[in-house]
Nucleic acid binder design. Structure first.
Lengths: 211, 211
DNA sequence: TGTACATCAGTGAACGCGCGTTCACTGATGTAC
DNA sequence: TGTACATCAGTGAACGCGCGTTCACTGATGTAC
């Protein structure tokens, strides 16, 4: 790799880092090509040697955010596999609370993951897709332990539902609007929600109730 | 009321209606003062006789959306008060599904309710606040029947949690992204979620699990 | 190692577009007598 | 009812701002011999 190519990689990294800081501080609308150029010390036009356009930059930051979220959830799982049902429920609770912690500590980056819209054509690159699916592995293993009799499809659906539900509590709660759970109660309510669903499953539901 | 004042009210109504159509079709970013002026047949500047600024317009549309959502949920409740626990659970399910139906049929208007950010100072007018709280009345009555022993504060918290959870499933599901529940399964999963939580409550939880 | 040339990153002024809001002016409507 | 005046909605050109992206040019870096 030539010195030029190395420099370009360094510049690109610096650019993404600067974009990440900008989004973290001001949201995606606060991303200005001129600010970034000034921050990493290059000319305005040079940005377009490093990156296709501003959308690519937001996507790259999103990928990093997803990576950091993944790491935060993986840290919870680092304690080893849960062995019994009780431990599996506790693990699901811990993951949900870690998810809340990440969202609370990275509000704008986290929100950008869900709210940012690309231009019309809206092609989400393959790597971004793969990133998203990775997150589910943290949920699926403990969930399978809670619901041993379910098949993969039902489990996958339940996993998405549980994730979405927790996401909803976090998203509305962190908005500080009136329909949400007050911030101070979010962790408790997430725990209650996850435990209630698990208890409901134990009480005979299989995630797909009869009509 | 003079003819002039009447005309102004009519114009204001037409303006809000035009704004509503524009948001429904193109999202809040598609709201253009010039388009609206053309649509209601007045000069650009005349808009500012009807409305303070564009933010007020979005807020007014939001208020209308909230009103229509309220009506949609009220239609579910029109069948009369649920009498027993079973009926109360069914009512909660029906309301949640109606919520999904509204969101699905009014995706951009619904999303604007949650994603639109006012300028920095961010004053949400009192009437908007009151609107939001009204929605909860549809949930609270059946919920009280499901959980008769809970006090008002715990009930309120559980109501917010349940609403947020359903909201999350709807919001991520309608995004058509990979982490969400597939559209075709949303109703079923909402029903499962609500029933599971209610079943969990029956199984002994009170919404505030012990540490 | 040295020289000549080619490549391509770096530059920043300029382009192009979009758009909310203002403002001096006009003319219709309302009011007072 | 009629007249004179005042008010204020209506007008649309112009203001002001922001900003992503391009492009002709330059100079440093890499390559071939």
């Amino acid at each position: 790799m030539t010195a030029t190519a190395q420099r370009r990689d360094r510049q690109r990294t610096a650019l993404v880092a600067a974009a990440e800081r900008a989004i973290a501080e001001k949201g995606p609308a606060g991303l200005k090509a001129r600010d970034l150029a000034a921050e990493i010390g290059c000319a305005l036009g040079a940005i377009y040697n490093l990156v296709q356009d501003m959308d690519e930059l937001v996507l790259r930051v999103g990928s990093r955010t997803l990576g950091r979220l993944d790491a935060a959830l993986a840290a919870v799982a680092a304690e080893g596999e849960p062995r019994d049902r009780e431990a599996a429920v506790a693990r699901l609770v811990a993951i949900a609370i870690a998810y809340h912690g990440f969202a609370r500590d990275n509000p704008r980056l986290w929100r950008t993951l869900f709210e940012y819209r690309l231009a019309e054509d809206a092609e989400i690159p393959d790597w971004a897709v793969a990133d998203q699916l990775q997150l589910f592995r943290h949920i699926m293993a403990p969930l399978a332990l809670v619901l041993p009799q379910a098949d993969a499809a039902a489990l996958s659906l339940l996993g998405r539902t549980l994730f979405s539900a927790v996401h909803g509590v976090v998203a509305l709660g962190l908005e500080d609007r009136l329909v949400g759970v007050p911030r101070a109660d979010i962790d408790r309510q997430i725990e209650a929600l996850v435990r209630l669903v698990c208890a409901g499953l134990a009480a005979g539901g299989d995630g797909t109730p009869l009509p």
